[in-house]
Design a protein around this nucleic acid. Structure first.
Length: 260
DNA sequence: CGGTGCCCCTGGACGC
DNA sequence: TGCGTCCAGGGGCACC
């Protein structure tokens, strides 16, 4: 599933493809991907409009239109973007298409879990951006300590608390900070919160670079080969065997030697 | 209002 | 090779 670094690169590369281009046609093939919105309303509001901006907010991609409307897309677990010639045969799992002059942007998902909306309020439902300068250590401390109960991992992947971190990168961040993912969030020491505060941008920025290099201008794929612990076998630092546990029904990987 | 657990769904991994 | 089975995984929502 795409997380902040993947989406950041999709955004970058999408800009080169669709910025300042007119949406000549829209096709809603699986209406269930539209959130509180009919296909005819969607078509009416986007066809003929020009894409003036592309932003990422958390795991959302936001296409700003010349009308002022915003197309807000969440790729969920399996959603993929495709940039193809409009005439190219479409696979059965294509959910929605935005057509431009010659090429189309297709939203493909076998599960049709992708969510598309025009409701700008969706954007405000997610927490602060961890790579923005205004994300402070005090903010992180509040996120971890505001409630007594709950593990540190579950807190960091809660989109209402911090935007963009998912199940893979949270493992990497906790490894970088040397913190066991099962630790109680509210009991972390100041030193550990500081380590976490530094690890978050370090891991995410590094990942953005790696993903950029690997996608080579493309808008699909989630390179994960450079990760240290998530779905890995041994710790690159100490060679200890990586442990896999389940936390909140999610596969969680950590180094029992480096993460306490 | 908060916490919990289920549901959405299928590709890919795995066992035989 | 090929068939059956299992299950990951973000977010919404019903339920208490």
């Amino acid at each position: 599933m795409p997380e902040l670094p993947d989406l950041e690169i999709y955004k970058e590369n999408l800009k080169l493809k669709v910025l300042n281009k007119k949406i000549t046609c829209a096709l809603v093939i699986k209406p269930r991907v539209l959130k509180q919105l009919s296909a005819s309303d969607f078509n009416q509001k986007v066809i003929g409009k020009i894409v003036k901006s592309i932003e990422r907010r958390g795991k959302l991609l936001i296409f700003g239109l010349s009308s002022g409307d915003k197309i807000i897309v969440h790729l969920m677990l399996y959603g993929q973007l495709q940039w193809v010639e409009t005439s190219k045969r479409k696979s059965a799992d294509t959910c929605l298409i935005l057509e431009f002059a010659d090429d189309s942007l297709r939203f493909v998902d076998g599960t049709a879990w992708i969510k598309v909306t025009l409701d700008a309020k969706e954007i405000d439902r997610v927490g602060p951006e961890p790579l923005e300068a205004d994300f402070t250590e005090t903010q992180l401390q509040n996120i971890l300590q505001k409630k007594q109960l709950g593990g540190v991992k579950e807190r960091l992947v809660d989109q209402k608390l911090i935007a963009g971190i998912g199940n893979a990168y949270v493992d990497e961040i906790l490894w970088e900070a040397g913190i066991n993912p099962a630790r109680a969030a509210s009991l972390l020491k100041d030193k550990e919160i500081k380590a976490l505060y530094q690890a978050i941008p370090k891991i995410l920025k590094q990942a953005i670079k790696e993903v950029r290099q690997r996608l080579k201008g493309g808008i699909s794929g989630e390179p994960r080969d450079f990760l240290a612990v998530h779905r890995k076998k041994e710790c690159p630092r100490c060679k200890t065997k990586i442990k896999r546990i389940e936390l909140n029904k999610k596969g969680t990987y950590y180094c029992p030697h480096c993460q306490k």
